[in-house]
């Protein structure tokens, strides 16, 4: 069979996207800015969802009542992450990070967050944790910096 001419194509362009967070997440971020964690309630199943959104998929109902959650909860599940992904490349982290799923008091969904103040070897599910905010908040998700064990 004849050889085919194959060329490598390379495109040095970027697609830039600007996303609107919408009303519900906007209010959640307002909350983080004032160092509060807000959840929202489904009027039918009465689950408190955090982060909040406009619809409960279980009941297909519009969520309604906003609640300010206590910034404490229980670690339900976790993984120790050794790598991070940057533009699709898997890179080793400088040091492992604990990523946990936390059930905040009064919430029904688990919040994913970083856990600090406990070593990867000692971390256990069932641990009581509390939210630690950045000193200066800017109204971004990063305002809620991490959770740490309740002493």
């Amino acid at each position: 069979m004849a050889e085919h001419k194959i060329v490598n194509s390379f495109v040095g362009l970027q697609f830039i996207y600007n996303y609107r967070v919408g009303e519900y997440l906007d209010k959640y971020l307002d909350g983080l800015q004032s160092k509060k964690i807000l959840g929202i309630t489904c009027p039918e199943c009465e689950r408190v969802l955090v982060p909040p959104r406009s619809m409960c998929g279980k009941c297909n109902a519009k969520t309604k009542k906003w609640v300010t959650l206590k910034p404490v909860g229980t670690l339900k599940n976790f993984t120790i992450s050794h790598v991070e992904i940057e533009q699709g490349e898997i890179k080793d982290r400088e040091k492992p990070v604990i990523i946990g799923q936390i059930k905040l008091e009064g919430a029904d969904s688990l919040l994913t967050a970083k856990i600090e103040g406990v070593s990867p070897k000692e971390v256990k599910t069932g641990l009581k944790v509390k939210a630690v905010f950045k000193d200066t908040t800017e109204g971004t998700l990063q305002d809620l910096d991490h959770f740490e064990p309740v002493k």
């Binding site: 967070v21 009303e23 619809m55």
Partner: peptide, 12 residues
């Protein structure tokens, strides 16, 4: 432009 909503909120 719909700066007031995110994508799922637009569709719902």
């Amino acid at each position: 432009k719909r700066p007031d909503v995110n994508i799922p909120e637009l569709i719902q």
